[in-house]
Amino acid sequence: MKLNLNINADVGEGIGNEHLLMPYLNSCNVACGGHAGSEEEMDRVVRLAKSNGVIIGAHPSYPDPENFGRVSMDISSADLFTSLVKQVRSLVKIVRSHSLNLHHIKPHGALYNDAVKDEGVAQVIIEAVKGFSAPISLYVPYGSLIADMAQSANIKVCYEAFADRTYQNDLSLTPRTQKGSVITDPNLVWDQLCQMAINGKVITAEGEERPIEVDTFCIHGDTPNAVEILKFIREKSS
Rank of each mutant, 00 (worst) to 15 (best):
F68S: 02
Y159C: 01
D170Y: 04
Q195M: 03
I94C: 12
V157F: 03
L173P: 04
H103W: 15
N67M: 01
A115G: 07
L84G: 12
P186R: 03
I126T: 10
L91R: 05
H103P: 02
V92R: 10
L102P: 10
T177L: 03
Y159I: 00
D148R: 15
L188N: 14
E160A: 08
E127F: 07
Q192F: 06
Y167G: 04
K117L: 11
Q178D: 12
I198F: 00
I146Q: 06
Y62R: 04
A150E: 09
P135K: 11
P63W: 09
Y159P: 02
D164W: 06
L138M: 13
G200F: 01
G200K: 02
A78N: 15
V124Y: 10
S76P: 10
R176H: 05
N199V: 00
M73L: 09
V182F: 09
S137Q: 14
Y139N: 09
N169L: 02
S76F: 06
H108G: 08
N67Q: 09
I155K: 01
N187Q: 15
A153C: 07
T82Q: 13
A128D: 07
N187R: 14
V189C: 14
I94H: 08
C194W: 00
I146R: 06
V202A: 04
A163E: 00
Q168M: 13
A78F: 13
A147Q: 03
E66V: 12
Y62W: 03
F162E: 01
L193G: 01
S90R: 11
C194N: 05
Y167K: 02
D64G: 04
A161V: 11
A78V: 12
Q195W: 00
T166A: 04
D114Y: 01
E160F: 02
V182L: 14
H103C: 06
H108T: 10
